[in-house]
């Protein structure tokens, strides 16, 4: 799988959670990439995605900034 395809796969996972009503509330970055924690306000459910590609790490960051500003 090319890096672009990996990015699209990771983006799809992020978009899926967002479409289900999850919001990003926390992210931890380390040597292995970013562990992005999502929270569903109504159900109180938490989910974590391990985001590896650079473009997906940019993508979730922008979503996070948008969510914070709104």
């Amino acid at each position: 799988m090319s890096e672009h395809e990996q990015y699209l796969a990771e983006k799809e996972k992020i978009d899926q959670l967002l479409s289900e009503g999850y919001n990003i509330y926390h992210a931890v970055e380390n040597l292995d990439g970013a562990f992005v924690e999502f929270f569903h306000l109504k159900s109180g459910t938490k989910k974590t995605l391990h985001i590896r590609t650079a473009n997906a790490r940019k993508y979730f960051s922008s979503i996070f900034i948008q969510q914070k500003s709104s």
Binding site: A27, K58, S61, F64, I65
Partner: peptide, 8 residues
């Protein structure tokens, strides 16, 4: 980006 992540 870092400011946003750090604030979380």
């Amino acid at each position: 980006r870092q400011a946003a992540l750090n604030s979380s």
